Simulated assay, not measured.
Amino acid sequence: MVLSINNLFRKIGDSINNKNILFCFFVSQFLALIIYQNSYVANFGDHYHLILDIYRGNNVVYGGHPESPTFTIIGLLFSFKNFYIYSLLVYFISSLLMYGTFRNLSFLKENLIFLNFTGWIITISWWMGYVDIFLIYFSSYLIKLAYNKQAKNLTLFLLSGMIIFTHSGLGIFLLITIHILNFVFLINKVKVTLLGSIFGYLLNQFYLQLIKYDFSESRLSSALDKEILFENIVNGVKNVLSIFNSSIFIFSLLIIYLAFKGTFKINKNIILALIIAFLGSVILYDTSRYFSILSFPVVVSLIDLNSSQLSLLKYKVHLLIFTSFWPKTHIWENRSYQDSPFSDQVTIYKIFKDLITYFF
């Protein structure tokens, strides 16, 4: 299967000599571990106990947190019954998929480094345990296929299905965004991706039925609540600059620089995709987190469209300096965060510390 983790491992061997991919990956790990500092989501323990309950066959009705099931299913497949091992599994799979993302987008060549200076790295770092990294990886794979204009229908079917299965709400907006940005190639593939999306959605619903999911607490039910929806849109408009900064982040400096020189390029597809990404983020509530994921294809398109101008820039890596003090303005539940909302709970450092205590 094209999207399998095993296939990703094999491809790592093929690209290990590509210093650009490795360098970008190591930069992302430095940012995630040192600058942004990894943290697991507040209900990460609930995710783990969900795995145990499913494994033991406990008859429990579950609320909102298992709606995006990918890590849960991986935990079940590996039958991990140790919280620390499961935590490390989530971290290493996330890191592996980050590497895969850089590999998929290697067509950006020397401009690949600029992906490290946008908000998706912050989201992946702060929301460990959620399926965000899977969406980023799958979207990067779809972008790669569209860029090369070579994709079998079965591959597109499975890829679309995995995106929707992983997170139905985000997946819909993500597929729309990618199709807008790659309209010429993907317009003829709409039927295939639509069928794949339906398959992924049905598979997701089947899984949720198996674990007796409480659909009254789903993201869809919140999005359909008129009061909540109106409040989200109003707050999104109020915080529009902060939301955009939380995604475009340091790359905005380059946009300003190129615009000042009169060489910045943008097209109507990028603008429309950016609007769709923003609407999706305010409708689905976890504003900056969602926007950084939905706008990820937009950032890739901006880098690709301005590749000739960006490739002329020297000292690209020096942008790392800005990661320490550039305002993150990560909006969640109508609050702006400069640090992870979960930094006082489970972090990768606490996991390693507890592991050492546990074994020694």
Rank of each mutant, 00 (worst) to 15 (best):
T177P: 01
V190Q: 05
I12A: 13
S222N: 07
S307K: 14
L254N: 07
T166H: 04
I228C: 07
N334G: 04
I348Y: 15
N38S: 13
S216N: 11
I321F: 14
F291M: 09
Y48Q: 09
L272V: 12
H47F: 08
D14N: 12
I122L: 15
P66R: 01
F359H: 08
I93E: 10
I276M: 15
G169R: 03
S140R: 00
Q29K: 14
V184Y: 00
I93Y: 02
I233L: 14
M162C: 10
G100L: 10
I293R: 07
Y130T: 08
S95K: 01
A223P: 00
S247P: 00
I124N: 12
F80H: 09
I248Y: 01
Y130F: 07
S288E: 13
R219C: 04
L195V: 06
G45K: 10
L312N: 08
L96Q: 05
G171Y: 03
I228N: 11
L154C: 04
A277K: 01
S295T: 07
F249K: 05
Q309W: 09
S221P: 02
F173N: 02
K81E: 12
L310Q: 12
Y36L: 10
I136F: 02
L159K: 05
W120P: 02
T72E: 14
L274W: 13
V192G: 05
L33T: 08
V282N: 03
G236I: 11
I228W: 01
F278K: 03
F199P: 06
N116H: 11
V61S: 13
I5T: 12
I54D: 02
F342I: 07
L112R: 06
